[in-house]
Write a protein that binds this DNA or RNA. Structure first.
Lengths: 336, 336
DNA sequence: CTGAAAGCGCTTACAG
DNA sequence: CTGAAAGCGCTTACAG
């Protein structure tokens, strides 16, 4: 490992000259710069980022906390984050909360230790259920920019990027109504997240504004062990002819289960889900889905951080909302 | 941001005493330690990792490079990596190569800049196609541990963790033969990766060792644009009654396509794929899959790094191979 | 048991 | 245009 000092003594120049040359300072003559850069290459000089960070008080690192990468949606968001971060010369550190508040808190602490320049976070189910956002207090005092995405805390002092979940669910429900569905149920394994609440809201709003007479039917569960029994129960006491599911997996499970029970999709039962991922495309029939543009969410989150970073004096809080799109496939009937 | 020095002057102690107290040095009296720790908590002292890294010459960071997180398999591996890394108090920095050699190389450089303690890498398609591993040369001289996983360079000086792809494909093919399939084709979008090659090898070995008379049929493609035409062509000139697909997506696509063309699965055509992810479980019929235990791969990769880290003097190279398991579902027929 | 001092590898205000 | 010096926030060998 060649250091800057070593390079200096090799070239018989001062360390400061080397540093300035490598950083393209206008103070240095082109001739010297060239010499230095060549030597740096020759001797495989690699600047030590720890030293640099210590001096400059910025690490060019962003900490990212998501509930789970194996969830296809968060995987895509992470992909978007990484691309956009790289574009701005930031490297990302990632941690997964596994939907545990304790872990989420640990990760946040850890990122502060690492002096990341900012944190991007989507809260764990537990955090949202308990409404426990105390761990953000440190951040507030510390000036470190934090941007929330997808699962956010509303009305907080931090910026956020979200999907227009309410509108997405509203449009999906409206579409079902327009195809002639009379009794639409809402299936949600994420009832306790901000996202789940907004989707439910959209569903209820749509029913109401279309003068829907029958009661809303909400099938909300925390564990897939409870899902089938609850579904059965709901279908026994109602003539359900459509489901809107609050995420991808629950949409697939609903589809597979009702088919197993002998219902035809979409003739007898229509299904719309959220998250337009590969699962919904691979099912049989392919699912009509509310598409969320996960990568865009990732990119916007980074952009929001960059703004806060570059103009820390301007008002920093901004709330970005990304529109959804209803992707029609064969799990719903054609419009009447 | 309270620093150690500030804490020292508050407590009227030397910085070295503070440092030792917080690091639980036996040199310091319990009474002092307690006082220091309490003050640290009170004043919200957060140690600066950059300074620590600079001094200790280790960052407690691992760099991870994978082709793509939106691939469910790599997502799971990453999940395993993060869990195991956290267990050993390492934080991960991640970058995605998007299967580009240039990006992969940039990421590697970047990680060296950050002085990560080690790198875990699964090579890009491009790297494997071009057999271009020059970017590893720097690492060799720099002593930094690197562990390859899944897509690896065989016979190199770096440790590796792989799936037993050959055996997995061998067993899957053998299973198809035992269910009475006569003409088995191999579908691969990853022909140029080490993984793809081993799977093909297993397929060919199985055909041979079961005295299979007919020619192997390999449908290898780089873009899904080419897939359907190639599949059609292959099926026209052969009475294919089974496919083994080298990954999850190609298995799903094969399934959907042959069904679209009117074939019954598994009655007329059997299908086995690789990667036992959620896609294969959601398809109709659900797919028989070679399960790879992706999370275990992630954990083993970290373990291998930890060993190299802790005992740098012992022989460090180790090659771990993880066994696969054939998960039977409804895309294959029962055994004869 | 506590402290003074040096140093990790950089950057930058300042001097020449 | 180049260089000497200080300092970022820690840790640790050494002294007392």
């Amino acid at each position: 490992m060649t250091t800057l000092k070593e390079l200096a003594s090799i070239l018989d120049l001062a360390p400061s000259t080397i540093s300035k040359s490598l950083n393209n300072s206008p103070e240095i003559s082109d001739c010297t710069k060239l010499k230095v850069k060549e030597a740096a290459k020759e001797f495989g000089y690699i600047p030590n980022n720890a030293a640099r960070s210590l001096k400059l008080k910025r690490t060019k690192c962003i900490g990212v906390i998501i509930p789970n990468v194996t969830d296809a949606f968060f995987g895509k968001v992470l992909h978007g984050i990484e691309e956009e971060a790289r574009k701005h010369n930031y490297t990302i550190m990632v941690s997964f909360s596994n939907n545990s508040h304790r872990l989420e808190n640990n990760h946040l602490q850890n990122f502060m230790n690492f002096c990341v320049d900012g944190v991007l976070i989507s809260f764990s189910t537990e955090t949202q259920r308990q409404k426990n956002y105390k761990h953000l207090n440190n951040l507030e005092s510390s000036q470190m920019p934090l941007v929330m995405f997808d699962r956010v805390l509303e009305n907080s002092v931090f910026s956020s990027v979200t999907i227009d979940d309410l509108e997405g669910a509203y449009n999906a429900t409206t579409h079902l109504i327009k195809t002639g569905c009379k009794k639409i149920a809402f299936v949600s394994p994420i009832a306790e997240t901000s996202v789940g609440k907004n989707r439910k809201h959209g569903y209820l709003d749509a029913l109401q504004s279309h003068g829907y007479s029958s009661q809303p039917i909400c099938i909300e569960f925390n564990s897939y062990d409870d899902f089938k029994p609850m579904l059965k129960e709901a279908m026994k006491s109602n003539d359900i002819d459509a489901f809107i599911a609050a995420d991808e997996l629950s949409a697939i499970c609903t589809l597979n289960t009702v088919q197993q029970w002998g219902y035809q999709v979409p003739n007898q039962i229509s299904i719309v889900g959220f998250t337009n991922g590969v699962m919904g495309q691979c099912s049989n029939p392919p699912l009509t889905m509310v598409s969320q543009n996960a990568e865009k969410m990732g990119k916007e989150t980074v952009k929001s951080f960059i703004k806060a970073m570059e103009k820390p004096n301007l008002v920093r809080i901004q709330h970005k909302v990304i529109k959804t799109e209803l992707v029609l496939r064969d799990s719903t009937r054609p419009l009447l």
